Simulated scan of single mutants.
Amino acid sequence: MSVAAERPEPLRLGGMALRNGLLVHGPTMWAAAVRAPDGRIVSASGRKPRVRSRAVDGLPGARGVVRLGEAMAVIPLVKRALPEARLPWQDARVLGSAAAVTLGGAALKRRARGRGGVLGEAALAGFSLLPSFLALRSGDLAAYHGVEHKAIGAYESGAGDARDATKEHDRCGSHLMAPLLASNVAGTALLRRVLDKPGPVAGAAVSLASIGVAVEVFAWSERHDGSRTTALLRRPGHELQRVLGTREPTEPQLDVGRAALAEILRAEGRG
């Protein structure tokens, strides 16, 4: 019997880079490993919260928002089980830039109402990404983003150790950015044609709808992996990963990724 035939189907894994480690999502469990201040690698795992509803699973748009909400609900569980974990936004500069973007965004919105048009909406959407870009360029977050892709990519391909895998991945959340921005700009422009003074509720509805659209595009790309359209849809995300979002990690950082991967496989019964 060949080695490929003996190898069980790999789990579908996702992840999120932390400032000092890696959070991995499995089908039913989460696991995280971080480098503690004293140099030790510490890890923890637990069960993922899940909304089980056939109505939600069968409703395009809504299911994506719900699944992203489930992923966010894991974060406080990680912090409670692993206090050493440092989240991506746990940085004074990132929090300061987020506050500045909030204030600046309000001013841009007021100016865009009368004359901004589609270009104004696009500029505002791009401006809102500044805290995320700053988070990636500060500390070790971009390196641990590379750890995430390398650890999961090496596991999925069965090709060997994480150090030999690429630091870009086809299921990275960066592939949500282009459809998210495009749908948000289009939705906001349409909203302002329909309503003279859109309120915060209408704006929130457009944001949620944009997330739903982006997740559906992401899922479509995965179902049609290898097509020319999928390659075009993923091009912005790959470039974002290559240029800004990821950095080649060090061997000690890869060790943290190996620990997170070992913990998720143990928690999912594949250890």
Rank of each mutant, 00 (worst) to 15 (best):
V34P: 10
A135Y: 00
T28L: 10
R115M: 07
S53H: 12
E216T: 08
P200M: 02
A209S: 13
R63Y: 01
R115K: 11
L23F: 07
P8H: 06
R50H: 14
I75H: 04
A143E: 09
V42F: 09
S157D: 15
A32G: 10
L23E: 05
S45K: 03
S43Y: 05
A178F: 07
G139I: 06
D38Y: 05
R115V: 06
A262R: 15
A135H: 02
G173D: 08
P8R: 08
L103V: 12
E84T: 01
V78G: 04
G15C: 12
V78H: 03
F218A: 01
V256A: 05
V201Y: 03
L134Y: 12
V51W: 12
H145V: 02
R270P: 02
A209W: 09
A135C: 04
A142G: 00
V66M: 13
H149P: 08
A219H: 02
L82Y: 03
P236Q: 12
G245T: 07
R242E: 14
P131I: 03
P37G: 02
A55L: 15
G15D: 02
R163I: 13
R234K: 15
V51Y: 09
A151L: 08
S227W: 01
A92W: 15
P76C: 03
F218W: 04
P10L: 11
V34L: 05
S157A: 15
L232E: 06
E263Y: 01
A154T: 11
H25V: 01
L59Y: 07
G46L: 01
L77M: 10
S227K: 00
D225L: 09
G187R: 06
A260G: 11
V217S: 13
R258L: 07
L82S: 04
V206I: 14
G64P: 00
R266A: 15
D57C: 04
K167T: 12
V101C: 08
G153L: 11
I152N: 10
L190P: 00
L11H: 09
S138Q: 13
L87K: 00
V201N: 00
A231Q: 14
G69N: 07
F127Y: 15
A33L: 01
V65L: 15
T102I: 13
E121A: 13
P131V: 11
E156T: 14
G61V: 06
K150Y: 12
W30G: 00
G15K: 02
D57W: 14
A178K: 02
L261S: 08
L265S: 00
A123I: 05
C172K: 04
K48P: 03
T102K: 09
G58Q: 12
H25Q: 11
T229I: 13
R163W: 13
P8D: 12
D57A: 14
G158Q: 06
V94D: 01
R80N: 03
P179S: 07
D57P: 03
A165E: 15
S97T: 15
G146E: 07
R242V: 06
L68W: 09
A165V: 11
F127N: 05
H145M: 05
G21M: 06
V3Q: 14
L87W: 07
G257A: 09
A112Q: 05
A55I: 15
L265A: 04
R270V: 03
S207L: 13
